[in-house]
Design a binder for these strands. Structure first.
Lengths: 216, 216, 216, 216
DNA sequence: CATGAATGAGAGTTCATTCAT
DNA sequence: AATGAATGAACTCTCATTCAT
């Protein structure tokens, strides 16, 4: 296999021409990525032909393979994009002992997850619907991603228990419950026509529900 | 195309021969369905070739199309099987005012959902992983199925509020939360090697968590 | 890769139908082989498209892959056919001490090589022109094949020296010379329009030349 | 298509600048030819991509087409180079009645053929392996080339007969035999790792064998 | 009813060549 | 003159489905 390097970085030693070329190249790459995201999220991975992507991106067949090794590869890249984005959002939360009040922290985690997905419905659809069951590598990525979110929630709950705000419930299982709620909400959102939803409010609802339970 | 009727019913005018033939026919059908379920749940829909199914079922290529219209059709039928089964389980719950105590009712709903899936991991995998994003018809079926479960949970919560056991929380959103928790747990279960899990206990945990919340 | 078994043997347990089917299958296989041989020898390996073969054989695209794993594979099989045929012809020669007179033996070796190629010009063209430089596996096959012929010639020459009919010349090098002559003649024959050539006579000429040298 | 002139000659009206440019141009051409020869002889014509050549020559894609019309064209040019070189070597032999002794003349022809090939194994590999069966034009060139060598050998043999040194053998057929021997030896040499072979000695062997025959 | 050989549309990918910069 | 991104025709191979036996 000739490795069509998915290289975005401009080569070093850049005179003006090289830099400009590299920028144009990166732009083109992004154009294709965007186009691919659109068709993938609309038709699904298997229903999408490379022909669909290149048509959407208005490029020639060969050009596609200039920027990506395969249909498989561009999908992986799109997937990585979202997962990374969510990671970045969640990473920033300070869970130290002197940080913000516990409830606010937990709220922050949930909210950021929702925000990361709302920013791009198409990418979210990719993660929640199209990437499921595609291949083992993807499954592992998704599992790792879920595990990451689960980890943050678990940590938050544990901290909450340490400072006496959370009752002696299994933090792990509970974290999965919360995550499940969030994912279910995301699916709902995806199926709704508009993003008229106030995710801030939704986060509140989820958290309130999770913290209070439903019992009177 | 509907030439190959997926007909299980014995033809009318049943002398013994016809009846026996019909029974054999039904058995054969079931054999193929079982085989298809095995390979679908193991390899996923797209990775499964008709060749895999007929090999697993030990039938000839043509025979497959004698019983099912297409690869697509047999998958739909399998999907219907599970959804129906869950429906049956959930349908039976008495939510009338004089029925069992509220908490037990809700517990019953959750437990039956879990049980329905546990009975056949393969079918569950189909619903939760392979059926996602296959085509619009399937998506609608899954949505309808989820809506059904959601409906029962909502109803239970509403009843609970009527008899003063549930605080004034939005029953619909809360029902989605519970359903999300359940689905997340199912996914966990699927990824674990054994069904050593005690679903009775799990149901308790989920419900307890949902009812109590996590707050001390 | 799904191994499309290049199976010619009828499956065991043959009732009449199975046997007949197997025979038909073998016939079809042969039809495709013949067609492939024609186009390969006419247009060369690389200029031949699978489309050419299936057109020549009057079969569908898929049918080709029912009988052969790839374009590569069918070429290998054709190549093996000729090499085996030559092997068979040459193998039968008795080089024992009490065998036929030496000159007749050597003549026999040369003649049989020529005959094996004459029997099918197309196959010969394959070996001498198209198979060269295709891939390493093929190159090894051809080298082994040449080595085989060379071995027989060397053995004959050695025997000739033992019984005092051959002067003390290096048998190995000389065998290569003879083989080179033969191959050159074969190439000539291939380039000529007709097989009007009397290979018996040609063998005589080659051998006479090789034995006598050109010096007066 | 002949747009990209494979022009080596400096343009007329040569001031210093033009001459210098032309020289540089010729050098560049040669660089590419050398690179192409290396990869062609190593990987074979079909396994060689234009990408391989330009990488080996360290030039840009477009530059290649500035100097050569096509991959096809550069191969033809390389082929011509060797054939011309052999021609030059062989042309110089004086076959006149007052020339060197006959045996020496014949030896000279053979030796020069070998030398021409030894000078560049890569070129030899091209002629003997890669050029075979590529296209009709090439085949004709190779045939013409062989015919040329054959002609010289035939002429030498005829002269030899005229001066009573060669027995009344068919000069044409015999010339093919000799040529075949030589080609076989060349092939052997190519397959050996080193050019440790003493071609002078080899020429002697071939000729001695051809002149003497093998008979005691 | 059962079979499995035959079908052919359609997929992803390659690579020699062009052309705007 | 030199570049290298862009092109798109052409390739091999797959696999759901059909149909003669």
């Amino acid at each position: 296999m000739t490795t069509a390097q998915a290289n975005t970085d401009p080569k070093p030693g850049g005179d003006g021409r090289t830099v400009r070329a590299a920028r144009k190249r990166a732009q083109r790459r992004q154009t294709v990525l965007d186009a691919a995201l659109r068709v993938f999220s609309e038709k699904g991975y298997h229903q999408t032909r490379v022909a669909d992507i290149i048509e959407e991106a208005s490029i020639a067949r060969g050009t596609f393979y200039l920027y990506f090794d395969s249909k498989h590869a561009i999908f992986h890249e799109l997937l990585d994009m979202l997962l990374e984005r969510v990671d970045e959002n969640v990473e920033g939360i300070d869970l130290g002992p002197d940080a913000a009040p516990f409830r606010d922290q937990l709220l922050e985690v949930v909210k950021r997850i929702l925000i990361a997905f709302r920013e791009d419905r198409a990418l979210a659809k990719l993660v929640l619907r199209e990437a499921v069951g595609l291949d083992e590598e993807i499954d592992e990525k998704l599992n790792a991603f879920n595990a990451q979110l689960h980890g943050w929630l678990t940590l938050s709950l544990t901290r909450g228990q340490e400072i006496g705000l959370i009752r002696p419930i299994d933090p792990e299982l509970t974290a999965w419950c919360i995550l499940g709620s969030v994912r279910q909400f995301l699916q709902l959102v995806l199926d709704r026509p508009d993003d008229e939803l106030d995710l801030d409010h939704l986060s509140e609802v989820i958290l309130d529900y999770n913290l209070q339970g439903v019992r009177l």
